[in-house]
Simulated assay, not measured.
Amino acid sequence: MKVRELTASDIALFSRLIMDSSEFDTLTDLERRECESALTAAKAVVEGYTGLDMATTEQEDLAYAVKVLAAEMIDSHQITAQYTGKNPVAMQIMDMHSSNLLPSVEV
Rank of each mutant, 00 (worst) to 15 (best):
S37Q: 11
S99T: 12
C35S: 07
V89K: 10
L69S: 08
S37Y: 02
I93M: 05
D53F: 01
Q59I: 08
V68D: 12
G51Y: 05
S37W: 01
H97S: 07
E34G: 12
A38H: 03
T80S: 15
A55P: 01
T28I: 03
D75I: 07
F24N: 14
S37A: 14
A65C: 01
L17Q: 13
T84E: 13
S37T: 11
M91S: 15
E34L: 09
M96F: 05
S21Q: 12
H97I: 00
M54E: 00
S98V: 02
S37V: 05
I74T: 05
C35D: 02
S37E: 11
L27T: 10
T80L: 11
A63N: 07
K67N: 09
E36K: 05
K43P: 00
T50Y: 04
D75V: 13
V46D: 05
E47H: 04
A42D: 03
D25G: 15
K43E: 08
K86D: 13
C35T: 01
E72T: 12
A44T: 00
L30E: 13
R33D: 14
A44D: 08
T40N: 11
E58L: 10
R33Y: 01
K67G: 12
Y64Q: 15
D20H: 15
C35A: 08
V89Y: 04
G51F: 00
D61R: 03
T84G: 14
A71S: 15
L62P: 05
D53V: 00
M91N: 13
A41N: 09
A81Y: 06
H97N: 08
M91P: 11
G48T: 03
S76H: 12
L17Y: 11
N100I: 03
A71V: 10
K67E: 12
I93D: 01
I74F: 06
Q92R: 10
G85A: 14
L52S: 06
S99I: 09
S21G: 15
T26H: 09
A70I: 00
A41P: 00
K67S: 12
S22L: 12
I79L: 13
T57Y: 01
P88M: 09
G85C: 10
D53I: 01
M73R: 08
T40S: 11
L17F: 10
M73P: 07
V45E: 12
T50A: 08
E23W: 07
D29H: 04
T40M: 05
A42K: 04
A41R: 09
S99H: 10
K67C: 14
E36R: 07
D20G: 15
C35W: 02
F24P: 14
T80Q: 07
D95Q: 11
E36I: 00
V45P: 01
A42R: 06
A63H: 00
D29C: 03
H77W: 08
K86P: 08
G48D: 03
E34W: 04
L69I: 09
G85W: 00
A44C: 04
S22M: 10
Q82A: 15
